[in-house]
Design a protein around this nucleic acid. Structure first.
Length: 565
RNA sequence: CGGGGCGUAGCGCAGCCCGGUAGCGCGCCUGCUUUGGGAGCAGGAUGCCGGAGGUUCAAAUCCUCUCGCCCCGACCA
């Protein structure tokens, strides 16, 4: 296509609202424009990238036997009420009424709708398994849209749903998706990990996320290079290192030592005051659950993992100052696990060792506290995994990386098929709920991740598979007839070969064309300048390596083969 | 929803404390020169200073309210 006819509004300066690299570059290079918070317009170049990604997704989904269909974005409330999610989901769902006053919503995802369809159309085990997918707009009233197209209120998602007769079938569909997803992300040129994740509001059983490592990512993942363990920090386990504990006095009367710690409340204050490492402290956090107060105990160097705790004690909130004082008679900075009957949940790492904890006495801490002996607690993993802690499966050190969630796969089981009565008849004529899976990919997140992982100071470096064009022709001086003639001939010939070509036919200076070409990031640039033309040559520049090769003008096949690699 | 920041020309910003009728760079338009890494000279156009109300002789500037956008946190299929 001709640059002069395309809408490619490049910007010399970074947009003020952008923070993430992919966001800055997508705006600067003329791929997207923001309409409002979390709402983006895809300009021609941006849309070409999304379409390239979608094509790869379609190919890989079709390969595993998935069938494409399309479901509405506007949904009647009743279906969401039947699964209970109408009430479970809060402000994140866009809700509206139609003219007849009926409650409606805009689809955040399509489990309800696809299950409704299955309940109507699937009769027999002979019709299973099925995989249905769509590439469809989703709407979520995000509390905080951010990072350009990474978190938006309206976005396109490839979502697929599997229907099987039993768990073994679901396992097969799940693995088929895993394979397809690995192919898709690899073909899109992404570095990624598949990690264990929290099923969250999807419910059901196992789930994994596909994570593209990037500093712009909102998620953190724990990874083990040794055994391949990988998990979102939302659920990642870890084996904390064991600190050197002080020896415990034999004489029971000398066990405890109350130490005065005036005005020292936080772990930092107390550790520096007593000159002890934070690992030798018990951090006590008072929360109020549905069944009353709970004291959560983690080691001083650890952070309480609220989601892990929630799985044990149910919903809770942190206790107010006066509640702490009422329950333990002392303010929060000096509370500890001893001498009261409040339910205690402690991190596993506290099972061994001797610690300092709050003394439940204003201005005092207590040394020599030995869990199990000195107080009883329920033990569980309730700390957030950290880099260098041990891998829960092999013990080797973990690393923690930020990552963008580009895809996920969930085993739903019968969570949706039961309430929506999506059943099939088995060989015996018995009615059995269909076993389902749900699988998502965000094409815009793939595009943003590709930029996050492939750019330099001059701009984007697209992986060839998802680049808006294959080749960018730069006729430097459009007033030189020879330049134009060669450029046009090359343009025509490459197009005939099925190569997607952008030709910068603008009457602009060479510098501007070079800068825009590097910013836009098409993997190969064919530079047509008068000096080389005199020798019958053109240059082909590799955007990533910046290597330049000269070719004879007639040597089209060599140019083509270079650009196709 | 809590905390912070910012709304002034198409874009990036200054001016605001200390009120006096709006400025810089880039871009845009015209002409000439230039033409291998965001050209030079000359001329030109462009603003409801986010919105509403108030104070004042006078408001981009001070006060109140409101809307929008960004960042941190909470939340997040």
């Amino acid at each position: 296509m001709r640059y002069s006819k395309l809408l490619i509004p490049t910007l010399k300066e970074n947009p003020s609202e952008a923070e993430a690299i992919s966001h800055k570059l997508m705006v600067r290079a003329g791929f997207v424009r923001q309409l409002a918070a979390g709402l983006y317009i895809y300009l021609p170049l941006g849309w070409r990238v999304i379409e390239k990604i979608n094509r790869i997704i379609r190919q890989e989904m079709n390969t595993i036997g998935a069938q494409e269909l399309s479901m509405p974005i506007l949904h009647p409330a009743e279906i969401w009420q039947e699964t209970g999610r109408w009430n479970e989901i809060g402000d994140e769902m866009f809700r509206l009424k139609d003219r007849g006053g009926r409650d409606m919503c805009l689809g955040m995802t399509h489990e309800e709708i696809v299950t409704w369809l299955a309940s109507k159309e699937i009769r027999s085990y002979r019709e299973l398994p099925q995989i249905w997918y769509q590439i469809q707009t989703k709407l979520r009233d995000e509390a905080r849209p951010k990072s350009g197209v990474l978190r938006t209120r309206e976005f396109i998602m490839k979502d697929s749903y599997s229907f099987d007769i039993d768990d073994d079938g679901l396992e097969r569909s799940y693995r088929l998706h895993e394979g397809a997803y690995r192919n898709i992300f690899s073909r899109c040129g992404l570095k990624f990990y598949m990690v264990e994740s929290d099923p969250g509001m999807m419910g059901g059983g196992m789930s994994h996320e596909f994570m593209a490592p990037s500093p712009a990512g909102e998620d953190e993942i724990a990874l083990c290079d040794n055994c391949g363990y990988g998990a979102n920090l939302e659920i990642a386990g870890s084996i904390p290192g064991i600190p050197q504990f002080p020896s415990c006095p034999q004489d029971p009367s000398e066990r405890f030592e109350e130490v005065e710690t005036p005005e020292k409340r936080t772990i930092e204050e107390v550790t520096s005051y007593l000159n002890l490492n934070p690992e030798l402290f018990i951090k006590s956090i008072m929360v109020i659950g549905d069944d009353g107060p709970v004291l959560a105990l983690v080691r001083g160097d650890q952070t309480l993992h609220e989601k892990k705790l929630k799985k044990i004690i149910g919903n809770f909130r942190s206790a107010h100052r006066d509640e702490v004082k009422e329950l333990l008679g002392v303010e929060a900075g000096f509370i500890g696990p001893m001498g009261h009957k409040i339910r205690k949940v402690a991190d596993n790492s506290l099972k061994q060792g001797v610690y300092v904890s709050g003394a439940n006495k204003e201005g005092y801490h207590i040394k020599g506290v030995k869990p199990e002996r000195d107080f009883k607690a329920e033990y569980s993993d309730i700390h957030i995994a950290k880099e260098w802690e041990g891998c829960p499966s092999c013990g080797k050190p973990l690393k923690v990386e930020k990552a963008i969630e580009v895809g996920n796969i969930f085993k739903l089981g019968t969570k949706y098929s039961i309430p929506l009565k999506a059943n099939y008849l088995d060989e015996k004529g018995e009615e059995i709920p269909i076993v389902m899976g749900s699988y998502g990919i965000g094409p815009a997140r793939i595009a943003a991740s590709a930029i996050e992982q492939n750019h330099d100071e001059n701009g984007i470096i697209w992986p060839a598979s998802i680049s808006p064009f294959d080749v960018h022709i730069l006729p430097l001086n459009t007033k030189d007839p020879k330049t134009i003639e060669v450029a046009e001939r090359l343009y025509g010939n490459l197009k005939t070969e099925g190569i997607e070509v952008l030709i910068d036919d603008r009457d602009e200076r060479a510098g501007i064309k070079f800068k825009d070409a590097d910013l836009i990031g098409i993997p190969y640039q064919i530079v047509i300048g008068e000096k080389n033309l005199k020798e019958g040559m053109v240059e082909v520049k590799d955007r990533r390596s910046r290597n330049v090769k000269k070719f004879k003008i007639e040597d089209l096949s060599a140019i083509i083969s270079l650009c196709r690699t």
